[in-house]
Design a protein around this nucleic acid. Sequence first.
DNA 1: AAGGTGACTAACA
DNA 2: ATGTTAGCCACCT
Length: 113
Amino acid sequence: MESVESNFRVRVEAVVAQIPKGRVMTYGQIAALCGSARSAQIVGSIAHFGDPNLPWQRVVNKSGGLAAGYPGGRHGHAEHLRAEGVEVHDDHVDVHALLWWPPGEEPAQQGLF
DNA sequence: AAGGTGACTAACA
DNA sequence: ATGTTAGCCACCT
């Protein structure tokens, strides 16, 4: 009995809800954790139409760029990130420094040289 | 119900 | 270097 209400969306929301404050994840990364590495676009769709209570502001694109469709635009998104202690510069964040993986889900690349 | 859009990413010309 | 095409699947009309 799988009341799979689009498992994908449920997983995406679950992951986003776990992003710690001051950290960010990318759409492709979340999509990969949900089983579809190429479904980054879907994550974006869910972000737009999904639960607005989730910290979508911690979700950025792979370039560290902010979301165009975010309420308030990229500027609003930037302000929200700054409020969490994230340094936003020219609508971009240091994705290399702030990128976060859920504990136990890392693709074995952080501790490895 | 079917088609089109999309807060993305990657590959190709 | 930029522009286009393809792919993924959910949500909207």
